[in-house]
């Protein structure tokens, strides 16, 4: 099962479980942040079945395009 969508953490709440309100292109859902405890408002996380499973690395996010640029210039 692999559908996970990137969303921006808006707020973090600690109750019984650490959760956050996460915005996916304007649609907001409460997501459990227990598995990404370092996530802060402004960070992007990948959410799967109500859980954040990873923080999105901005640095690596560009690698899909930089790889393309590299292979396009390679003979």
């Amino acid at each position: 099962m692999c559908l996970a969508i990137p969303g921006e953490v808006l707020t973090v709440d600690s109750g019984d479980l650490r959760t956050g309100r996460v915005s996916f292109g304007g649609v907001v859902k409460v997501i459990c942040l227990e598995y990404v405890p370092e996530a802060q408002p402004g960070d992007y996380v990948l959410a799967h079945a109500g859980f954040a499973i990873a923080r999105v690395s901005e640095e690596h996010a560009r690698s899909v395009h930089s790889y393309l640029a590299e292979i396009e210039t390679t003979p």
């Binding site: 559908l3 969508i5 996916f24 292109g25 649609v27």
Partner: peptide, 12 residues
């Protein structure tokens, strides 16, 4: 719309 698109992405 971008919101409908986003909701569809979340729910697959």
């Amino acid at each position: 719309s971008s919101e409908v698109s986003a909701a569809c992405e979340i729910l697959g």
